[in-house]
Design a protein around this nucleic acid. Structure first.
Lengths: 156, 156
DNA sequence: TTATATGCAAAGGGTTTGCACAACG
DNA sequence: CGTTGTGCAAACCCTTTGCATATAA
């Protein structure tokens, strides 16, 4: 954990930014919740446990900064809320999302399924791919079975 | 063009909605700009040419309605603005986006590159895929050449 | 006629910004 | 020291809502 923080500290220092206590606390929250996709508000509430005097604006500014340095990913699941996610150690953009439109659950796919398609984009469109977003929308296992359950009830 | 409108009229009627003049004008704008990804504001301004007294709220309500009926797609390129896109005749989700993070241009890929991956999601995660979003982020041809141009300038 | 749809303006929610103050290097 | 960062509150922007009025079927 300290290793990650040191590394981020360096990435900041290179660009002339400082790792303040507020930023450190924010990074810590992100590290502790690497599995989730927290909104700025959620990050704010969690950071306040470590640093009660922090302001929401600071959290926004920190998340923006980390996003610019490609340390966190900023995404958007369709509700008008930005969500933030620490990028896994090194392997930048290797994850996709499976979003259930019934219950709102989000599952991550950890592999990169798109290498081939990226090459195709580069080849066919002369486009240099830096990153990608891939989301599947539909119904998850649980909600599917709930639905069949419900329709069984309706019949009987 | 009239054929498309009639069809949408039917889809509305089935659910008990009416094709008002405002809604017709909105649909017309979407048809005329099928290639673009208009924001609500942009749609509003274009619709006003046909129907000067329309309110922005009506445009929002119409776009929401059309989205619920799966007639338009609602998407989000990261700026905090929802964008709307008439779904091509029948083939629902068969397009992906290539977004240049330098100039903001958006190019569409018309094929569906994801059939295989969708099957994999269904198989490995028990997830019923209804739709997907795929976006590639990076630098387009034009911006790439501008960049190399610029660095050449810098050297000389 | 009656449910549905509209326009307007106000409210809402997330995000950004201006400014005076604090803190890092 | 000067630059960079912070907290607060106000400003901002896009979007949604309440309500009285208008309109489609």
């Amino acid at each position: 954990m300290q290793a990650e923080i040191d590394k981020i500290n360096q990435q900041l220092a290179v660009k002339g930014y400082k790792l303040t206590r507020q930023r450190e606390a924010t990074v810590l929250v992100l590290l502790e919740n690497e599995k989730d996709h927290l909104s700025a508000e959620e990050v704010f509430m969690l950071v306040r446990d470590k640093f009660p005097d922090i302001g929401l604006a600071t959290v926004y500014r920190t998340l923006d900064l980390l996003h610019e340095l490609h340390i966190v990913e900023k995404m958007n699941f369709g509700d008008g809320v930005a969500r933030y996610d620490l990028r896994g150690t090194e392997q930048a953009h290797m994850h996709h999302h499976i979003i259930c439109t019934d219950c709102g659950s989000v599952v991550e796919i950890k592999d990169d399924w798109l290498l081939e398609l990226e090459q195709r984009v580069e080849r066919e469109y002369g486009f240099t791919v830096m990153d990608h977003r891939l989301e599947f929308l539909g119904t998850c296992k649980d909600c599917s079975s709930k639905k069949t359950e419900a329709s069984r009830q309706a019949i009987s």
